[in-house]
Design a protein around this nucleic acid. Sequence first.
DNA 1: TGTACATCAGTGAACGCGCGTTCACTGATGTAC
DNA 2: TGTACATCAGTGAACGCGCGTTCACTGATGTAC
Lengths: 217, 217
Amino acid sequence: VTTPLRGTKAPLRRHRARRGQGDLLRGEILAAATALLAETGDEAAVSVRAVAGRVGVSVPSVYLHFADKQALLDAVCDEVFGALDRAMEEAANDATDPLSELERRGVAYVDFALQNPEHYRIVMMRRPSLTAAAHEFEQITASRAFDHLLAAVKRCVDAGYVEGEVLPVALYLWAVAHGTAALMIAKPALPFPADFVASSIRASVAGVLASPAPGDR
Amino acid sequence: VTTPLRGTKAPLRRHRARRGQGDLLRGEILAAATALLAETGDEAAVSVRAVAGRVGVSVPSVYLHFADKQALLDAVCDEVFGALDRAMEEAANDATDPLSELERRGVAYVDFALQNPEHYRIVMMRRPSLTAAAHEFEQITASRAFDHLLAAVKRCVDAGYVEGEVLPVALYLWAVAHGTAALMIAKPALPFPADFVASSIRASVAGVLASPAPGDR
DNA sequence: TGTACATCAGTGAACGCGCGTTCACTGATGTAC
DNA sequence: TGTACATCAGTGAACGCGCGTTCACTGATGTAC
């Protein structure tokens, strides 16, 4: 009898979780889905089968922890939103004044997107799913990234750097950061200059500065 | 013998094309794919079966005119790029000076995207396909929309309105327009103000104006 | 004008595939007595 | 301390589905003679 190659069937030897510890697997599944997304760079590669296989667990086990595939993807999105928020908060910590904080946030946003393109794509470039549509706005605000942006803009308005209402300005800055990231992700062959991210963010802030150029129409 | 309901099998009675006119079907298939995309608002709904069914033709007939599904989608993208370019050219015709032309182009771009979200998504928000990646840049420039944008920016630079090199400025303006459109498409539940498109485009142009605000750092 | 035949637009049926999901089941864990 | 048993984490096998693609075929069209 020839010994089968180790790992051909079960790549990772798993120990069954202790009695109240069933939720441990939930975290592993979530991490596997996130990793698969990063490695394959393709949302279509994240099937329930692929995730289960990567964890080293049977397919139905996934359904012990997530109602369906959409719930799994939603959980991944929550994680990504949280990480994006953390990246921006970290960048904001180094800022000395509210205006440069705004720029740092923007650059951190785009950098995160470019470093995690498939994660960014899944949260910001997908069609709004029918079921999640109702929760979309709550999901975004729940991640607190949007609240943090609004607060940062408000500080600039209060300090007199920026003109206009907070909400429209925040949405504009978000749109520019998103456009910069999404364009570079979707059309990487375009001849972007080396400082494209920094100069785009800078230009976006320049576009909302108070007392603009004399020639302003 | 009961007569079968008319239309249950073949929704449209088709006449077989004349001898050298086989390519007529190609146009119908392309139009059906485009219409399906618009009606379902879902790229996944555009299967070879669905397209053939909508034309009223058998599935293998599609392969007489397109090498595979990707070729069909590529052809749809070409159409969409062409329509987008036409929309912008039309908007540019009404402009009186190069600066307002730039704004009109931007607004027309976003309007097109919002009116044809699924068409816009397929050309600008999809993962760059492996095979098409090499041709991506050529595809964009071949549509001439990018050339037209570069020329419009150049006119602004030559007239002294805009500061900087043409290419980076054009890419920036594109990124802002794309971000505005893509954010509104992907996150429609966000509280966008009514004039968001116009004010975003205006702000983007303000961000690249020559001799910016005195407070400019 | 009539007919045999080459051309080619289009078809019916099937292929294998991977998918999300479900069902009845297993067997280790921990508790009650 | 020992044992019967309830619990529950996890499984093997199968379900039906729609997909892209291919194969051998049909039959109308138009041409050569």
